[in-house]
Design a protein around this nucleic acid. Structure first.
Lengths: 158, 158
DNA sequence: GGTCAGATACTCGGATACCGATTGTCCGAGTCAGGGAGG
DNA sequence: CCTCCCTGACTCGGACAATCGGTATCCGAGTATCTGACC
């Protein structure tokens, strides 16, 4: 049980794009230099965000990525689900029906597995907490100097 | 981000041991037949539960595993932490300090990373929900016929 | 009958293959910007 | 001087390898129980 690093990358990239505001799109190479990440691999991890409607991509020169919605409309749950997948971390394989359970009446398994229900309840709490936090909340707690620094950094690159 | 199947195995095994009550210990081979699991691998996944003080193992003939505490004193968090590890699923690699962040004042990073804080908040909600559920709660919602069936199944094996 | 030694069976712990998923890299399709020719 | 078209380069997108953690298995060491012989 270990979350891929793509989540951290995606969140920070979305936050940086939010800092930059609604100016020109930012290419993956530019974003990669902002965080010193492998450009090609970063591009691969940002593509699911485009498919999920969180980022929008512009081809051609002066192209790149930009936020598809306002920061208030992008929750952390959206980003995590887009990159890491929407399936639950705990998956019930119904081992209760195997072995000793095979002798039980089928009606006993009409109710969902109690273990799976308990794990699902915990994951729902996790998802609820992620959905309650938006990019706007991250902007609120980020250092005041960060947006200007990233903007200046992108300008000195070109 | 995907939880290992050992968590499901461990939870169901603990639940089965709780069903059986404080009778003789159950060997891994017996438990493996109850759920049709590979015996050797199941043993490897139950060992962390012994180290964590959730199960107690008895060597020699008539040996096996038994619950080390009462079901009320075993939370799902204990089992998950013992098998899956106590480290957070999201790990912050501080990419905010790299690239553009390298030019920032060091004092800016005295506060923890906002992204990591948000992710940690969600994981704490997950852990809190797991810690609130105990094996006794799982027993309460399990089918009434299950304990007797598992007991009978174990008896017909010997 | 009691006691002690040996055999047995079970568990624990580590060492060793195997597999899938994540990580990392590459090339092709599409598109917009810039430059040059023509009017 | 303005307009149009063509070339070019840059972008995204998906397809192709390599590496790592998790899965699965096995074997040796240690120990308590049981059996059997001996006193």
């Amino acid at each position: 049980m270990l979350m891929g690093e793509g989540v951290e990358w995606g969140l920070h990239c979305c936050l940086a794009l939010a800092w930059l505001g609604d100016q020109a799109p930012v290419s993956t190479g530019r974003l990669a230099e902002v965080f010193e990440l492998p450009p090609e691999y970063l591009k691969k991890r940002l593509q699911p965000l485009v498919r999920a409607g969180i980022l929008s991509s512009s081809p051609g020169p002066r192209g790149g990525y930009s936020l598809a919605r306002t920061p208030e409309e992008i929750s952390l749950m959206d980003v995590v689900a887009a990159i890491e997948g929407r399936q639950d971390a705990f998956r019930c394989t119904e081992i209760r029906q195997r072995g000793a359970g095979a002798e039980a009446a089928g009606s006993e398994f009409a109710r969902p597995c109690g273990v799976a229900q308990a794990m699902r309840r915990a994951e729902l709490a996790w998802r609820r907490e992620l959905a309650a936090q938006t990019l706007a909340d991250l902007i609120a707690v980020s250092p005041a100097a960060a947006p200007a620094r990233v903007r200046r950094f992108c300008r000195t690159l070109s």
